[in-house]
Design a protein around this nucleic acid. Structure first.
Lengths: 186, 186
DNA sequence: TGTAGCATGTAAGCCGTTACATGATTGA
DNA sequence: TCAATCATGTAACGGCTTACATGCTACA
């Protein structure tokens, strides 16, 4: 009796997807490693789930038989290693194929503050935008190094496309914000 | 004894900010009107809070004396009208001035699916991206009509800048995605 | 007369975070 | 030996959504 593809949260599918990359090469990941992988890739266009959530999700996926846990003994320590199951892969593919992707959700604190620019005046607004440009540059660097690691291996073609998407996005944001800065009064 | 600026959620500040636009001209809004305004402007770069949340937040703000509610009798019906208070305006400005804006959070289901493109193949991926382009065009139209309404009034200068930001973002997304489509195998 | 929109809420519940607790291993 | 990092969780709680309940008003 196989578990039916319950409605998982998108984050569940995202984590399942990360496991699927190694699933094909029949390797496995600990919760800790999965979290690191999420931090390196997922966070740029989805979320960087908290450690505690990673464990919670892995637990849920295991109960649904979408992943299997195997205790790995290293020294006198046990770490669980998780691997996607055939049922998990099937569920993931069904989700990818069937479900319509929703429109992205953007929470942009800097844009929100710009909206209320009249309450703080152009000088303070300039500072906000400049801050954002700095953060953007830092983020871009992070993503650029991820992109470098991905190289042009066929196996990593899609992750590389996504990384390029992100880089294009960050570049466009920089351009737009610099333009806004010039249009500010004063 | 004035309520201290408790840590409000960013959404609270956002709603307070929407009230501040009319606060200066000493008018006021009902919960319903506030929700409409959020749907017209806030949703493009923050959230479109559920009706129920708007009421909850207004309640909270009223308890903190950051807004005042006044029962308005129209016919045999009472509707609450909310108006920002001087304390509310002060709290909002302090938040705008003091707090460092966090980096935007992007939840991008299409990018997430592209990451796993290898699991569904290029044809299905093309479909996903094309779908996204369509949604993007629709959104852009919505925002363009908002932008038109804002015109070039001095009073609406900052909202207009934010709308232009959004339009630039949507255009850049379209460009990037069209480029990705061309780089897809097959 | 009935339905769509105006208007206001409460309740239940999910998703995700922070704080907390615990302990092993590695290396300076 | 001490600190950093690896590793695994539980508890409490905040934010937000959906579902539900209620009733008025305008108009076709």
């Amino acid at each position: 009796m196989r578990a039916v593809s319950q409605d998982l949260s998108t984050t569940s599918y995202a984590l399942l997807g990360l496991l699927a990359f190694d699933g094909s090469s029949s390797s496995s990941l600990t919760g800790y490693e999965l979290k690191q992988r999420a931090d390196r890739t997922l966070r740029f266009y989805w979320v960087a789930p908290a450690m505690s959530q990673v464990y919670t999700e892995l637990d849920r996926l295991a109960r649904l038989d979408l992943v299997t846990a195997s205790a790995e003994q290293s020294g006198r320590r046990t770490a669980q290693r998780y691997q996607i199951t055939p049922a998990g892969l099937e569920t993931l593919q069904r989700w990818l194929g069937d479900s319509r992707a929703e429109f992205p959700m953007l929470k942009h604190p800097t844009a929100l503050r710009l909206l209320m620019g009249a309450l703080i005046g152009p000088d303070r607004v300039r500072q906000l935008l400049q801050d954002y440009l700095d953060q953007l540059a830092e983020r871009r660097d992070d993503l650029a190094s991820v992109r470098t690691m991905l190289g042009d291996e066929e196996r990593l073609r899609y992750p590389a496309l996504v990384a390029d998407w992100g880089l294009g996005y960050y570049d466009s944001e920089s351009t737009i914000v610099r333009d806004l800065l010039e249009r500010l009064p004063g």
